[in-house]
Write a protein that binds this DNA or RNA. Structure first.
Lengths: 275, 275
DNA sequence: CCTACCGATCGGTAGG
DNA sequence: CCTACCGATCGGTAGG
């Protein structure tokens, strides 16, 4: 899957993941249809990822996947014991592939590079992981997380944590240099939010390419000059817009259960215009 | 729905949305079970939103929703002509409610407030919209967008565009003041990415409350002092980490279709350790 | 808004 | 990996 190669002859079945071992296809026997090894399994993963990304996990039928792979409706269950196992396999392979490319990029970077440039490389690589054609695995992972059985979430979470280690390092350095508007941990969560959110609104056509998007994301979250440390901390005093919002909600809202609120607040009056 | 009230006696059926008008419940006749008006319809919307958020649109059955509302399995279709119509109603009402609270907040703000503080109020209000209990509508809108029939997307898009107008204004001012690391349009998309992404990772327990999250988001994306306009533009020269990443992918990747790539690149060698 | 129901589909399996 | 199939469920409807 993805754009990242695996070693030749390295059957996917021998990977570290105990969660989804197929029946061991007895390679080398029978008719060597495609390649004899896990090619069909791989084709199922690729087709499933494509469908899951477009229509969602629940809306995709195992028959869709089978048909896209040229199989009969029952055949996917020869390779995967359930539809959910197929989803987990997609996520695991997506993260492994992303990790491979990220490691390769980091290894190719000069040693004396700044933390900002290192983060730039991580960001661009991540955009490639998300956006390059055929790379449906990581997007599916993020969007279909709730369809993963809780028992198997931990395995994927470990892969995600490992992937984020270099991000933590780079952002911690940037925080030390005063180049962030928040702390490293929050900046990392926000940065991934920006990057994953780009899948919703970004269209890589025209002038704005992935490379430029990467630059803009970095510029948006990482300053080039240290920020003034003056009032940068948490203002202990009342934050004006904050109290305004809080008060507005206190006036205008109930906790909301079933019935619409009685509506006697002045807020509503200020809203009558649009009705 | 939400925490924002509607005018008393304003049946939801008379709203601007032509997309989902129920059968006009003949209010005032029959047994006045709850309130006589669209209370059941409203209860369906609330219950559906809760389920859609937790389990997803496809995984939620209309029977789930009926049961949560104390109805029989066929009854939701008296109020909504289809499951999809229920989803659209959730999104429309979610946006209308968000717009109401946002308008109220803006109206309550002093006129001489800075663009930064105005944006702070918008951000905090938006976090309330996303996070306060019972407010499942807008999260559902973002997560289940692809389940909306294309014909009805436009209606909701209009509401979303209106909602974003004050954001555009505030961010345009901030861009003029040199407080953004990117342009106003991209900053807006990124900011919403951060805010919506918070639904994945943020837990409003402990020290980090919504108010502080709002501050941190703002600090992360909006400087307090104008940024140095020096090398802030697009560097026309080769961007080092960028070319490294691009080269790495060129070496390591094919476009990817079905079969795993042959893998003869040096990238793979540098990755053998984890196997 | 309930009763009773239908047609279609879906994940999964037995047995080869 | 195919054939043939099952049990369960699901969105939706007729008729009151």
């Amino acid at each position: 899957m993805m754009n990242w190669p695996r070693l030749k002859g390295m059957s996917t079945a021998q990977s570290l993941s105990p969660s989804e071992a197929p029946e061991i296809p007895k390679r080398g026997r029978g008719r060597p249809r495609k390649a004899g090894d896990g090619a069909s399994r791989q084709a199922l993963i690729v087709a499933a990822a494509k469908h899951f990304r477009r229509k969602g996990f629940d809306a995709t039928t195992t028959r869709d996947i089978a048909q896209a792979t040229g199989m009969q409706s029952g055949s996917p269950f020869y390779h995967f014991k359930s539809k959910n196992a197929l989803l987990v396999a997609i996520m695991e392979e997506g993260m492994r592939s992303a990790q491979r490319s990220q490691d390769a990029v980091l290894a190719a970077l000069p040693g004396d590079i700044t933390a900002r440039d290192r983060l730039a490389a991580l960001v661009l690589n991540h955009l490639y992981v998300l956006w390059l054609p055929g790379n449906d695995f990581v997007p599916v992972m993020h969007h279909e997380w709730r369809s993963v059985p809780p028992a198997q979430r931990k395995t994927i979470q470990v892969l995600k944590d490992a992937y984020e280690v270099p991000w933590r390092d780079a952002l911690a350095q940037l925080e030390d240099q005063g180049l962030l508007g928040t702390n490293a941990s929050l900046a990392r969560s926000m940065l991934f939010g920006v990057l994953h959110g780009s899948m919703t609104w970004f269209k890589p056509k025209g002038a704005l390419r992935l490379e430029q998007l990467a630059r803009e994301c970095l510029n948006a979250l990482v300053s080039e000059q240290p920020r003034t440390p003056g009032p940068a901390g948490l203002p202990p005093a009342a934050f004006d817009p904050e109290t305004v919002v809080r008060e507005a909600w206190r006036r205008g809202g109930r906790r909301n259960t079933d019935t619409p609120s009685p509506a006697t607040s002045p807020l509503v009056l200020s809203k009558q215009r649009a009705a």
